[in-house]
């Protein structure tokens, strides 16, 4: 099975990330894996869509029609989602949240086309969660004074008694881990079950992979995308605080 990109291209159970070819860098051996290839395909789809959207919006008409309508619908939907969750400070985060929303959504849906979804690799979801983590704490230090942060970190007890500080610190560090593991484990479990079904395909399964794809890729993928973005927005809103 070395070198196959499509999940369903063999009769044996195949859920792992495969290395396609290796290269040496600074004395270490690195591998170009199937995840890189799927992520490249997702990127090409997104870049192609953005170029087409850019071209459509340059010749935008007063009454939108066709492709321009679709682009405006997507942008408005993302803006409503972000501003509805984050209130008036949401406008600055539409770009970030919209970008990761579309990227995770297309990555999860790429399982429909037989690719191994890029989000079923922990090396993809951990950087996404770390980006959110950095954004959360950047905004926390930007909008709150150090005294407020210290009071927050010792929160159930008064700030001169920092017994709860280590526990709160652990719960802060758990944020990116749980964000990334949630997305990773959901997509990976769907991938594994689909691979088991495809291994059965020659024997008993005839039409039900379609129904399972509808659940594991479309429903679960959309829900997890929404949850990832929703939690990112909630954490950022909490970090910004009440003032403004």
């Amino acid at each position: 099975m070395q070198g196959s990109i499509l999940l369903s291209s063999g009769s044996d159970i195949d859920i792992m990330v495969h290395g396609l070819f290796s290269y040496e860098l600074f004395g270490h051996e690195f591998w170009i894996t199937t995840t890189h290839v799927s992520i490249l395909i997702v990127m090409i789809i997104l870049i192609g869509f953005s170029i087409a959207a850019n071209r459509a919006m340059k010749h935008a008409s007063e009454v939108p029609g066709g492709f321009q309508n679709v682009v405006e619908l997507i942008v408005e939907m993302l803006e409503n989602m972000v501003c509805g969750t984050m209130g008036k400070c949401g406008g600055r985060f539409v770009n970030y949240v919209g970008t990761i929303f579309i990227f995770i959504l297309i990555s999860n849906l790429s399982g429909l086309f037989g690719l191994r979804p890029p989000t079923a690799d922990y090396g993809v979801t951990l950087p996404l969660a770390l980006l959110s983590f950095i954004l959360i704490h950047f905004n926390q230090f930007k909008y709150q004074t150090p005294k407020q942060i210290w009071t927050d970190m010792c929160s159930p007890l008064p700030p001169w008694l920092p017994i709860w500080f280590p526990i709160n610190l652990i719960s802060e560090i758990a944020v990116p881990i749980s964000l990334s593991l949630r997305l990773f484990a959901n997509v990976l479990s769907g991938t594994i079950i689909m691979a088991l079904i495809y291994a059965l395909l020659s024997k008993v399964a005839y039409f039900w992979p379609g129904a399972l794809h509808a659940y594991f890729d479309v429903f679960s993928g959309c829900i997890q995308t929404y949850v990832f973005c929703m939690l990112t927005m909630t954490y950022i809103s909490n970090a910004i605080g009440e003032e403004e």
Binding site: L181, R182, A185, N186, L188, Q224, V227, M230, L231
Partner: peptide, 27 residues
């Protein structure tokens, strides 16, 4: 509905940790 789905997805996390341990042990 959206609040319920968000809460359910967060509640799912602990079960997914068990699933991850199982996957690591198996594969």
């Amino acid at each position: 509905t959206s609040t319920m789905l968000l809460g359910q997805a967060v509640a799912e996390t602990t079960g997914l940790y068990g699933l991850l341990v199982a996957i690591l042990l198996m594969f």
